[in-house]
Structures are given as structure tokens and as C-alpha cells.
Design a binder for these strands. Structure first.
Lengths: 232, 232
DNA sequence: CGCTAGATTGATAAAGGTCAATCATTGTGG
DNA sequence: CCACAATGATTGACCTTTATCAATCTAGCG
């Protein structure tokens, strides 16, 4: 059996070091986590878990893109997060998952039993502290999503979203890959798919972004793009 | 010097016990936290800390209501959270607070140095685990705020907001106290103060809520109110 | 008793939602 | 290899809702 080494990435709450996100686990911690993890390879559309079902596992993403979503009483489906490498998911409440997790692309994840994880964390305060940091990071990101959704225009929300994707992707600056469908972007930003389409068209019309196909965006005017994304 | 006993409240991620939020610290843990805490009494409008300033302290609310907000580049002010008893705040990134904290009413808070807190948590994995639970709780709440802000109508968002307030207040069911101004509610829900006023008027017109003064709402039709608040 | 911050009300316009039709892409089976 | 089905993206017309702006009202307070 291969040795697994899950990794977590977050911006630290303390000053010093890099300002951006960085790997927060030591090699020893990764091996320790790996020892209670199982690797899964999943195809697009695979559901890893469903909301309101018994929460047995946490997941650490190693490769690929996934979405966490919730089905609202109104029947609408709301995407609460997109997940990429070094992200964690499996948030639970009263023993039940609070959202569903579905693969968007081919993905590799590490699956970890909650009881084993809890036991490990309670034994190892240093490792636990890193999880605390990762959760704090997630909380800040969630607040930023809230703020983004409050923005007036679709173009502003889209610019913010595209920049978030760009920052998460280690690819060359200016090239942004969008693995998800328009409808997913829409329900992440509190828009309709039509509004996403029109917003993308507007960004292109104004020369901030060019699209090469549905799943590829390129920053054309960095200054204007950043200004719009920041909400200035 | 008085003995301080900060408390934290959260919904547990594991099944069993109460389904709603409960006190998550043991008596011993409260005393331990209290030993590194200082009690502050503040008047309305007092700023506890400002965003982008050096983050030295975390705060645990003991009494009163506060708001956490962020000033956006656009000049708008966005309320990211309202805080009540047993809530924690002071989220930092790169050593800087990510938002500002201001008292709405007279309030009592416990102030805890971050370095002392971190040291304590790294020594006591069990206490640290409770903080992990509290952060997970905050993350779920933040996701729910995002979803609420995505709702179409102002009345829906308001109903959700009022029910959240009701659930946090231990007062008799059906009586909801709103300590904050209309503008604060608006910027928490992604609306304008005018829309809040009109939304409140609509809730009253439709018989879901009655208002006795600006700061007091009463549930008049529980069924319809809950249905709207849930977004059905 | 007026002052002031906040709340309310009204008129208008901007923006996205909604609905329906069309286009594009992918995958399937003959 | 092509016809066809199915899903998703796009476009257009229209409508709902809130943002915006301005004026007015109200309550608390010196």
C-alpha cells in the first residue's frame, strides 16, 4: 500500500512568512494523517457524500476540482464552495453532513474517518492547531464569499470569482481555468446562469477578460480587472 | 480580582445530546481560559478593534450585542456578523484583524491575548478541540448567511434574520429584540436601509410579524413566518 | 424646545430574474 | 460515419425587485 501524505493549505493568522496561502503541515504530520487516510480516485459527477446523511469521513483534496452544495427547501441548489488541492471538506452538524460533495473533474481525494481523525487530533495538539488554522482560513473565505454575493452587478461578482480561481491555480498568471459549468458559477454567486453568461460577455466587451472556449478565461487588462474584482 | 469564566456555545458536529447549540466548555476549561482573560465593560459604539490593525487579542462575549464589520474599497460598510453571549471574535490573517468590532449595546467581553491563548491551546488538546468545534460552528453560520443573502426578496432575508435572532435570544419564543439599527441589518443582509424598512412593513402587512417599536418584533403567525424564514 | 441621527415614504431607474427559443457540444446507436 | 438525442450555453423580450435619490417624519437628547 502506497504511503499517503495529505496536505493542507491556508493563510496563517500570525504575521511573518509568506502573506499568501502556504502548506501548513510538517512532513511528520502529513505521514501521520496519511496513516489514517485512504486514497480515492473519482470521476466527474461522482457524489462523495450527501447532505443530511451520517457523516463518517472527512476528505482532503489531492487533485482535481469538486463542489460542495446544498439543496434548499425552495428546490434551488446552492453551491457553498468549490474545492481544489489541499482543501478539506466534510463539515458536519449533529452527526450529519451539512452539504453534499460532488466531483467536477477527475479527482483524487484522501478519505479519513472522523473518529480516527478526532482521536488523532486529541492526542496531537500541534496537528490539531493546524486544523484550527485551516478552519479559520475557511471561515475567512466564507465571509469573503458572502461579501462578494452582496455586490450589485454580475460583472463585479464574476471578476471577484475569476480572481479567486486564478489565485488558487498555480498556473501562469492571467490564465484561468473554469472546470465548472455556468450554472455552478451562478449558484455560487447568487445569480442565474443567464446572468453569468451576460456578465462574461460584459467583461469581454469591456476588454478586461477574453475567453478561449467555455472553460478558459484570460486576463486582458490586469489593472481594470483587479480594480473591479476588489470592488473599488 | 474576580474569577472569570468565559463560555462558548456551539452546535456539536457529532450526533447525540441536544440538537441545538449548547455550552461546550467544562468548568475546568472555563477557569483555565478565565485565568488568561481580562473583563472589559464597554458602552455602545465602542470600537474593540479595527480591521487591518495588529491582532493582539481574541474576545469572548459575555453580555450584550456587538457587530463585526468590514469597510470595502467602494466605501460601503459591510456587517459580517452580529455577536452575542458566548460568541468568539478576533479573526486574524497575517497578524492583522480581518474586520472591525464595535459594541451595539452596553457589553461585557473577555479579552484574551492571542499568544497566551495559542500557548494554552497547544498545551491542552481537549480545550483546543472545543475551539475547533466553535470555529466549525461559525463556519456553518457564515455559510448560512451567504445562502440567506442569495435569497431574492427582502422579506425572505428579513424573516431568516429575525428567526436567527430569535434562536439566539433565550427570551420567550415569539419576542425578538433588535438592538441594531436598520442600516446594520441592511448591510448584514445585502440590502439598503430603505429595503429593510419596506421588508418589515411587508412582514407586518402580511400578518407574519408585528412591531412594537423599532427594536421589538413579535411573531404573529408562526407557521407562515417559519415557512418564509426557511425559504420554502 | 429645537437639533440631529435615524427611520420612513415616494418616485424613478437600473439590474437581474424569468420564460421561451435557439445554438453548440457531446455522446450514442444505427 | 452520420443522424439524433440530450445537456448546457446563449440570446431576446418582458417583468419583478431593489437601488437610488430626495423629501419628510420621528424619537432621543442636550
Amino acid at each position: 500500500m502506497r504511503t499517503l501524505r495529505p496536505t493542507l493549505r491556508a493563510v496563517r493568522h500570525r504575521a511573518g512568512g509568506k502573506r499568501g496561502p502556504s502548506q501548513i503541515l510538517s512532513e511528520a504530520q502529513r505521514l501521520q494523517l496519511g496513516s489514517i487516510a485512504v486514497e480515492l480516485r473519482v470521476r466527474p459527477r461522482t457524489i462523495l457524500y450527501r447532505e443530511e446523511t451520517s457523516a463518517e469521513w472527512a476528505f482532503v483534496v489531492r487533485e482535481g476540482a469538486l463542489k460542495a452544495f446544498r439543496d434548499l427547501p425552495s428546490g434551488k441548489r446552492c453551491v457553498t464552495a468549490f474545492l481544489f488541492s489541499d482543501d478539506i471538506c466534510g463539515l458536519a452538524e449533529n452527526g450529519l453532513y451539512v452539504n453534499s460533495l460532488q466531483a467536477i473533474t477527475n479527482a483524487v481525494v484522501h478519505r479519513i474517518r472522523f473518529d480516527a481523525l478526532e482521536e488523532l487530533l486529541r492526542r496531537d495538539a500541534a496537528l490539531e492547531f493546524e486544523f484550527l488554522c485551516k478552519l479559520a482560513h475557511e471561515l475567512r473565505e466564507s465571509q469573503r464569499q458572502t461579501i462578494a454575493v452582496m455586490r450589485r452587478t454580475a460583472a463585479e461578482r464574476l471578476a471577484w470569482f475569476l480572481r479567486m480561481l486564478e489565485q488558487r491555480q498555480s498556473a501562469e498568471q492571467g490564465h484561468i481555468h473554469l472546470p465548472m459549468r455556468r450554472a455552478d458559477i451562478a449558484s455560487y454567486l447568487g445569480l442565474t446562469p443567464e446572468a453569468v453568461t451576460r456578465g462574461c460577455a460584459e467583461l469581454q466587451r469591456n476588454g478586461l477578460i477574453t475567453f478561449s472556449g467555455i472553460h478558459q478565461a484570460n486576463v486582458a487588462n490586469r489593472t481594470a480587472f483587479d480594480r473591479l474584482a476588489s470592488g473599488a
